[in-house]
């Protein structure tokens, strides 16, 4: 287990991932940090003790073969695993120096700070407007209608969806195309202005063009948000991530700048995966 957990090297993450295309907006401050996190489903251990730091405004990608625990770990970061009865999390995850699994920690507040976008777009069976307005309304963030309109518009703009839907805000969100739905879900998440956005394979259900749009959106969002994403698509990680973490069989094998992971991995398993020996 200790062979797999690589200490993170802050200096390496400042270097630009993928060379010419991406420019990291990361500040270098640790936003979130996990210490020896283990996850159990009933008696089966799914995650074997993971240590990782997540930096402010970086894009961090989790890659690895299916069933390696990357999604499970991602869902630990805003305690979505609480919704599964048999799931148990051990270890410590700290957000802004506060343990998110502390008994007095409020999960409602946590999830407002750490938003999540799922694999399959899941707009509510409500209008587009109501989909976006749901979060702010829920948390009492917009007192007046004008304020709410403002939040809805700016969120949709940030998600790059405003131009496409501004004339049909009262139509059901489920009527949009898959890519639009996913961007709607992203807009819904940023309407609460979280600090961190978790994305669980956000493009796996989308066609290449929609995928391109979402990737572009991720790049823009990293201006002001910390983004942690799971992807099964190595090229995607290479395109959008500042740093990449490789998971295998419940271990965090290696985490480094995306550049290093894809060109010069330190670990044999990472190398085998990157070069397509398995996965």
């Amino acid at each position: 287990m200790n062979t797999s957990a690589h200490p993170n090297i802050p200096s390496s993450m400042v270097s630009v991932g993928g060379g010419e295309s991406r420019k990291s907006k990361a500040t270098g401050n640790v936003k979130m940090s996990a210490k020896d996190v283990k996850v159990f489903y009933g008696n089966t251990q799914a995650i074997n003790g993971i240590d990782i730091d997540i930096y402010e405004n970086e894009v961090l990608a989790f890659i690895g073969p299916s069933g390696c625990g990357k999604s499970t770990f991602l869902r630990c970061l805003n305690r979505m695993n609480d919704t599964i009865d048999i799931c148990r999390v051990e270890g410590k995850i700290v957000l802004d120096d506060q343990d998110i699994y502390a008994p007095d920690r409020d999960v409602v507040l946590l999830r407002a700070q750490v938003g999540i976008v799922f694999q399959k777009p899941n707009p509510f069976p409500k209008s587009i407007y109501e989909n976006i307005a749901y979060g702010p309304r829920l948390h009492g963030l917009a007192k007046r209608k004008a304020e709410l309109d403002d939040v809805v518009e700016s969120s949709l703009r940030r998600a790059g969806l405003w131009e496409e839907v501004k004339d049909r805000l009262d139509q059901p969100g489920t009527g949009l195309s898959g890519g639009q739905q996913q961007r709607l879900c992203i807009a819904r998440t940023i309407a609460v202005s979280p600090d961190i956005i978790l994305m669980d394979e956000p493009c796996s259900a989308l066609d290449p063009i929609a995928t391109g749009k979402v990737e572009q959106l991720i790049d823009e969002l990293s201006e002001s948000y910390t983004i942690v994403m799971v992807t099964h698509n190595m090229q995607q990680a290479a395109r959008v991530a500042d740093r990449t973490a490789f998971f295998h069989m419940g271990d965090l094998v290696e985490v480094d700048s995306t550049d290093t992971i894809f060109t010069n991995p330190q670990n044999q398993r990472t190398h085998d995966y990157i070069t397509g020996r398995f996965g």
Partner: peptide, 25 residues
């Protein structure tokens, strides 16, 4: 831009914290 977002986040945390007791009740 990042300042306004920072402010908004601050404001948001306070608002939510205030309403939490009621919502949990």
């Amino acid at each position: 831009m990042s300042i306004t977002i920072e402010q908004r986040r601050q404001h948001r945390l306070m608002t939510i914290e205030k309403s939490l007791a009621t919502r949990h009740r």
